[in-house]
């Protein structure tokens, strides 16, 4: 008989990824915690053809913000004071994953009662990762163009649809 203590370890349907919370996507269409960074894409306020690719590294909190055409963001301009794009990115990440999960991933120690990620970030500058992150965003968008299927996909029995946080 499986004991209670290792029930999680011996469950085929053990939950691993917490469901993301719904949020508005118009300003920040893409956010992910990946490759040791909080990274994503922020729509430009002035030009519908342009997006900013922003990231914050875990651990040393290195900031980076560039356009999809690889021009440096004027707001950040290589400094350590977050631009509006980075602030929007962090806000979207907190809305999507919750403050605790984002803080844990970035290895941020928040002061007691802090409701804001920035109070715990000691920012540095980081190398430009715009090309990688932008291609990740394009891969993400490409899922919307994958045709649907009626294949029985038996392995989906391992992936129940996300339950509500009721």
């Amino acid at each position: 008989m499986t004991s209670e203590s290792d029930a999680y370890e011996r469950r085929s349907a053990a939950p691993v990824i917490a469901p993301v919370r719904p949020r508005k996507l118009a300003k920040v269409p893409f956010v992910e915690l990946s490759e040791g960074r909080l990274q994503g894409v922020v729509s430009s306020g002035s030009d519908v053809e342009r997006v900013y690719v922003s990231s914050i590294t875990a651990g040393d909190h290195g900031l980076s913000c560039n356009t999809n055409n690889n021009r440096p963001c004027g707001g950040l301009s290589g400094g350590t004071r977050a631009c509006n794009h980075l602030r929007a990115l962090a806000e979207a990440a907190v809305a999507q994953y919750g403050l605790d999960r984002v803080a844990r991933y970035l290895r941020v120690t928040l002061p007691d009662g802090a409701g804001d990620l920035w109070s715990g970030l000691h920012t540095t500058t980081a190398p430009n990762r715009a090309a990688e992150v932008f291609s990740g965003f394009l891969r993400h968008l490409a899922y919307l163009e994958v045709p649907p299927t009626a294949d029985p996909l038996p392995e989906l029995q391992w992936f129940p649809a996300a339950g509500a946080v009721r």
Binding site: V20, Q96, L144, P148, T149, A150, L153, L156
Partner: peptide, 9 residues
Amino acid sequence: SVAAAKVDT
């Protein structure tokens, strides 16, 4: 069944 590709959001 029918399945569609999507993204996490």
